[in-house]
């Protein structure tokens, strides 16, 4: 671990004043919440901030449900949110996505804010034995492009980075039109989850839109998406405790035997949590005929780019959408 100073501010405004920059990979001051990702990055010298600002104990950890919808404090743990009765009953997609993430031990420790801003699992990013990684060392190249890229993205990629955003939670949230509340020294603002993460383009080291000092204080999910039929489907090489090879978050409203409105997002395939408006439009009004679903899901392939080992994801993600819609539709 690179030597660093650990700051343990007494309150949030003290924390903000350190000017830590979340969501970019070249910041000299960083936040740490549950630490389940950050500690690994520090241990492996992937991140070398001089100063680490602990958010422990100074962020809201409440879980509230009201007429506006769901509000998850940034410090609520994955385990708490997954097991919360209102979440389970009204936003089961969130609970499912969380229960399909990591392990009980990690979920007990990891927070909502940290989950959204965890770093990619790209092995070249995480192994400093590789020089080339634009995300870790801007301008150094991308070892994944022609390397072992079975884990990598097929959507939202650039010539500079093809890393997957690894969060399952974010995939469910983006499908449910969630937003994050941010607080900075300049005040509060709310950002739709779909705008929180940036595409890699030629600046893959910039991952989120947070300004210096800004923290995520809460996640909000609108009441309009409560109680939808939904399913979070996660395909992986083992039955549990693994990041997604491909995942699909689906929430639908039905009208008899037809889909009135569908929300579809994918994980494991995008450089950020990936919502699919085209697929949603095609699903609106559709029945559950496999061929119809299949045709709608095929639109997910628009704009995909495989790099060899990950080509299979383009087919697999379409199948995952179909299956998730079927399962969601079968729920009462």
């Amino acid at each position: 671990m690179h030597p660093l100073v650990l700051e343990r501010p007494r309150d949030l405004s003290a924390a903000l004043s350190f000017g830590a920059q979340a969501g970019r990979n070249d910041a000299p001051v960083e936040y740490i919440a549950g630490g389940t990702d950050m500690v690994q990055l520090l241990q492996e010298y992937v991140r070398r901030p001089d100063r680490l600002v602990s958010l422990a104990g100074i962020l809201d950890d409440g879980i509230e449900i009201g007429p506006q919808g769901l509000r998850l404090g940034a410090a609520a743990t994955m385990a708490e949110v997954a097991a919360h009765q209102a979440v389970v009953e009204q936003f089961p997609l969130i609970s499912q996505a969380l229960l399909n993430s990591a392990s009980p031990q990690v979920r007990n420790q990891a927070t909502m804010g940290g989950n959204l801003l965890q770093r990619t699992r790209c092995p070249y990013f995480r192994d400093i034995g590789y020089e080339a990684c634009n995300k870790r060392a801007p301008g150094s190249g991308c070892a994944a492009l022609d390397g072992e890229n079975r884990w990598h993205a097929v959507l939202g990629t650039s010539d500079d980075c093809i890393a997957v955003h690894p969060s399952d939670l974010a995939v469910a949230l983006v499908a449910l039109d969630a937003s994050v509340e941010l607080r900075g020294t300049g005040g509060d603002r709310s950002v739709p989850l779909s705008d929180l993460h940036r595409l890699p383009r030629d600046t893959p080291h910039l991952e989120a839109v947070l300004e210096p000092g800004e923290v995520i204080t809460a996640i909000t999910v609108p009441a309009t998406t409560a109680g939808l039929r939904s399913h979070y489907l996660k395909v992986r090489d083992r039955a549990s405790f693994e990041f997604a090879v491909v995942s699909a978050a689906v929430a639908i409203e039905t009208d008899g035997a037809r889909i009135r409105q569908a929300r579809v997002a994918l994980g494991g395939v995008g450089t950020k949590p990936w919502r699919l408006p085209n697929v949603e439009t095609a699903l609106a009004g559709a029945d559950f005929e496999p061929a119809v679903l299949r045709q709608a899901a095929a639109l997910a392939a628009e704009g995909t780019r495989g790099r060899g080992h990950n080509d299979f994801k383009i087919e697999l993600m379409q199948r995952a959408i179909v299956r998730a819609v079927e399962i969601a539709g079968a729920r009462r």
Binding site: R121, P123, R126, D127, W151, D237, R238, A239, S240, F241, E242, F243
Partner: peptide, 13 residues
């Protein structure tokens, strides 16, 4: 070279 990406069976397997 880590136990997140090198999969060995877990209980659910």
């Amino acid at each position: 070279a880590n136990l997140a990406e090198y999969a060995v069976p877990v209980h659910a397997d």
